[in-house]
Amino acid sequence: MNNKIFIVLISLFSFINADAQENLTSEVKTISEKKLYVKGNALLIPIGVINAGLEYQLSNKFTAQGDVLISPWKSFAGHEAQIYMGTLEGRYYFKEAFKGWHIGANLSVGTYILQKPTYWNDNVFVDAQVGVPTQYINSQLYQKGFSFLLGVEGGYQFRLADNWNMDIFAGIGNSQDFYKGYVRGTGERYDSAEGFNRSGEWLPYRGGVMISYRLK
C-alpha cells in the first residue's frame, strides 16, 4: 500500500514539475522574443495631425511606448493649433503584452502656438493680473508656450492580421502650462504679466485608434 502511495506521489510530482517547466519555458520564450511595433493614430490623420510611435515589449505583461504628436496648423477652423509633443509611456497588459486590456502611465513634454478654447468667443478680454477689461476681444488673442503633462491611460489592443494590431485607447492627465499671450496681427502681448503666465488643469489629452505593425 505504501509503495502504491509512493508511486502516485512521484507521478503527481513529475506531472506538476513537467507542467511548471513547460510554463517556464513558454514564458522565457515569450520574453526572449521581445516584440517591437511601429504605430500610427488613424483617428487623427483625417484632420492632418500626426501621432506616431514605437511600442517595445519589456516583459510578458509590460511594454514601453514612445510617441510624438505633431499638429502643424497655423490656422485650423480660424484658430491657431500648432502643437509639438513627445510622450513616454509605460503599460501593463492584464493578459499578455499587446493583447487585451491595458493600463498605463505617461509623461509628456510639448511646445505650442494655439488659441485656447476659452478664447473662442468675442467677449472682452479681462486682464487677470489687474482685473480690468482691456481693448481686446478674446478671439483676437492666442498663446505661445510649453507644457509638462503627467497622466494615465487605458485601452484595448487586439490582432487584425499577421503582424497587424489595433490599439484603442484614451487618457487623462494634469497639464502644467507656461505661456505668453499675444494679439493676432500685431504680435504684441495682451496681458501685463512679466515673463510667463502659468496655469494648471486636468484634461483628456491622449486618445485614438492606433494601427500597429510588428517590426520584430
Rank of each mutant, 00 (worst) to 15 (best):
A105H: 04
N106K: 10
L107Y: 14
S108M: 05
G110S: 11
G110H: 03
T111R: 03
I113T: 12
L114E: 09
Q115S: 11
K116L: 10
Y119A: 10
D122A: 14
F125C: 06
F125A: 06
V126Q: 06
V126N: 11
D127T: 07
D127K: 01
D127W: 03
V130T: 14
G131S: 05
V132L: 13
P133T: 10
T134A: 04
I137H: 10
N138P: 00
N138I: 07
S139K: 13
S139P: 03
L141M: 11
Y142K: 01
Q143E: 15
Q143M: 15
G145W: 13
F146C: 01
F146L: 08
F148Y: 15
L149F: 14
G151Y: 04
G151D: 06
G154Y: 06
G154H: 04
Y156S: 03
Q157H: 06
F158D: 09
R159S: 15
L160V: 15
W164H: 09
W164C: 05
W164P: 04
N165Y: 09
M166V: 14
D167H: 05
D167W: 02
I168A: 10
F169H: 09
F169Y: 12
A170D: 00
A170I: 12
G171I: 05
S175F: 00
Q176M: 12
F178D: 03
G181H: 01
G181Q: 08
G181R: 08
Y182K: 01
R184F: 08
G185E: 01
T186Q: 01
E188H: 12
R189T: 13
R189A: 09
Y190S: 03
D191N: 13
S192H: 12
S192M: 12
G195V: 07
G195D: 00
F196N: 13
